[in-house]
């Protein structure tokens, strides 16, 4: 059955759609995979052929957004529709933080996942989108557990640590993943009596903290993003404990995008096998040029957008 883009294609009469289970469930299907930023349908096909588990359709990759400056908005729907038509894997697209109308447009088009993303210029500095109002699932960025749980509280069905997009520098991705996963471990060792004051300190919903204490894990899938530029970077994030990776500029700003894409997919599967990683890392050409995050002015850091 061909899927038409540009309109909400409902090919069945199923009523029990858009449930939490199917929203969080799609993220579970993406686990152990690589989600790649693509700006054209040709790139989308290269990503699909390389084994990407989903693509993120956008007009400019983060390193170009960084270079160009100005206001970065949702991509042109016709460009996103072209990518939806080009591939059969899930297609994600970005809406600005708090811009629920951009999200309505993306949902109407049949995008499979919306990234409420700090890579675009925020539309609301106080409020993120109320994601419970949508049938399409959302992924949101975070730097620490409090931020992750606020987004989940608003209805995010998947979380990604922010890292620092468009830098090709994995250091912030590591910092944010260690922060989130470290907090999850700490909560498990805490006495249940201490959880309310922790909720106060993290500015996070008590019920979600209670859930982590009882279940020993986040309630949704957690990927890593922002700065992954080599197979070793992807394997590093997987060994630290994330469940998959987003690679933005790291693929199509590298010397051999097709080769790099395949290698990062393989490294995300065999992340725990150094012998395999040796072979995977050979002869890839150069990664994207990187930026030193320490010398970057605070106002140029995308990760500090959103709260």
């Amino acid at each position: 059955m061909a899927l038409k883009s540009g309109s909400k294609k409902v090919s069945s009469d199923k009523t029990n759609t858009g449930t939490w289970k199917v929203k969080a469930g799609l993220a579970q299907m993406l686990k152990g995979g690589v989600i790649m930023d693509v700006v054209t349908s040709e790139q989308a096909k290269i990503a699909e052929d390389a084994g990407a588990c989903a693509v993120m359709a956008l007009e400019r990759v983060p390193s170009d957004i960084r270079k160009d400056g100005g206001v970065a908005r949702m991509s042109d729907p016709s460009m996103i529709a072209g990518i939806i038509d080009a591939v059969t894997i899930p297609v994600m697209a970005k809406a600005r933080i708090g811009h629920f109308v951009e999200a309505q447009i993306l949902e109407e088009m049949g995008v499979d996942y919306i990234d409420e993303s700090e890579v675009l210029t925020p539309a609301d500095e106080n409020n993120h989108i109320n994601k419970h109002n949508f049938k399409v699932p959302f992924v949101c960025g975070c730097r620490d557990l409090g931020e992750a749980l606020r987004r989940i509280g608003e209805g995010a069905a998947m979380i990604r640590t922010k890292g620092e997009a468009g830098t090709g520098n994995v250091v912030e991705a590591v910092r944010h993943a260690r922060s989130v996963l470290g907090e999850v471990k700490r909560i498990q060792t805490m006495d249940a009596t201490e959880l309310m004051s922790l909720a106060r300190d993290l500015k996070a919903p008590y019920e979600l903290i209670r859930g982590i204490h009882d279940n020993g894990k986040l309630p949704v899938v957690n990927f890593s993003a922002g700065g992954i530029a080599s197979p070793a970077d992807a394997a590093l994030m997987m060994q630290i404990g994330v469940e998959g990776v987003f690679v933005g500029s790291g693929i199509f700003k590298s010397e051999n995008p097709d080769v790099m894409a395949k290698a990062i997919v393989k490294a995300t599967t065999h992340y725990n096998d150094p012998e395999m990683l040796v072979e995977i890392s050979k002869g890839l050409g150069s990664s994207m040029p990187g930026l030193d995050v320490r010398t970057m002015p605070e106002d140029q850091k995308m990760a500090q957008r959103g709260w």
């Binding site: 090919s11 199923k14 858009g18 199917v22 059969t88």
Partner: peptide, 14 residues
């Protein structure tokens, strides 16, 4: 047939 019920917004429970 892949994606036989539509896109993600058509995913369902039964």
């Amino acid at each position: 047939s892949r994606n036989a019920f539509g896109r993600q917004i058509d995913s369902f429970e039964e």
